[in-house]
């Protein structure tokens, strides 16, 4: 078990195409695995010969291997998405802070995801579902660009069967889509939130998180009950290089999960 600058070797055991540009990789260690991780943390994934990027862990905490969901938007992420079974990948980590979903014990747990933001939230959701009796309602609100760009689409029904209230909305749909069309914040108004008894975890594009947090504040939640997953240019993963600085935070260490109490003023500074 190591956290170091030297990547641990992992092999791709399987991959699953989530959408046209997003893949979930299932990885198994070839030697010493990385340290145990908690929901919300990320790793640095190394596509040998191409480069290294930060990717949130999308699998359940405690699994032997690693599950990571990657969107192909550049050279490294495209190389990782194209990885085939048995291919070797370097992994450093785990890094960063956790969602702390268990802080909602005895309360409602609300997870709001936008696009691939569902991937970093999935470990928190699975952990909560494994301890379902500890929570009152578990509400999952998911926004996506279109039905075809919904990640983990095959799992939504299973989460519902495990007593989570799962609602999905998309920005665009044709007449065959039987679900919601609109922005994810519109689902909040229909969720009948109990603002004094809700912990909200939000992950998605920054503008979506800001708007969601604002809607939750308007619904009566306090800032300390809202957590967001932030990201800048994570590189070293150990708060040494400074690339991921956001005001006083080094997000590879002090994030990615940050209380909205801390995040709100930082997100309002244009230069950051």
């Amino acid at each position: 078990m190591t956290i170091s600058a030297v990547p641990s070797g992992y092999r791709v055991s399987a991959s699953r195409q989530e959408t046209h540009d997003t893949v979930t990789l299932f990885l198994e260690p070839t030697g010493d695995p990385i340290a145990r991780y908690v929901p919300g943390q990320f790793t640095m994934l190394y596509a040998f010969g191409v480069g290294e990027i930060p990717i949130s862990i999308s699998g359940p905490a405690g699994e032997h291997g690693l599950t990571q969901t990657i969107r192909a938007v550049g050279a490294v992420s495209s190389a990782l998405c194209a990885a085939t079974p048995r291919q070797l990948i370097g992994v450093r980590g785990p890094f960063g802070t956790s969602w702390g979903e268990s802080d909602a014990t005895g309360q409602d747990l609300l997870l709001v995801a936008g696009g691939i933001g569902l991937a970093p939230l999935r470990p928190a959701l699975l952990a909560a579902l494994d301890q379902r009796h500890r929570y009152r309602r578990i509400i999952v609100l998911v926004g996506a660009r279109s039905p075809a760009e919904l990640v983990f689409a095959t799992e939504l029904q299973e989460w519902r069967q495990r007593d989570a209230c799962v609602e999905v909305t998309v920005d665009k749909a044709d007449g065959t889509w039987p679900g919601n069309v609109g922005v994810v914040t519109q689902l909040l108004g229909r969720a009948d939130l109990d603002p004094r008894q809700t912990l909200a975890l939000i992950c998605g594009p920054e503008v979506m998180m800001r708007l969601t947090a604002r809607a939750l504040l308007a619904a009566g939640l306090d800032r300390a009950s809202i957590r967001v997953s932030l990201e800048r240019n994570m590189q070293c993963g150990v708060a040494e290089c400074g690339h991921c600085q956001l005001g006083p935070l080094l997000l590879c260490r002090d994030g990615p999960v940050v209380s909205y109490q801390v995040a709100e003023p930082l997100l309002a500074i244009r230069e950051l």
């Binding site: 550049g74 991937a119 760009e149 920005d171 992950c203």
Partner: peptide, 21 residues
């Protein structure tokens, strides 16, 4: 809400955890 949807925020390569570069 319509204005936010016009922004097409899920289309652009984001800087949020889980999918970038």
């Amino acid at each position: 809400a319509a204005r936010i949807r016009i922004l097409d925020v899920y289309a652009a390569p984001g800087q949020w955890a889980g999918g970038k570069r």
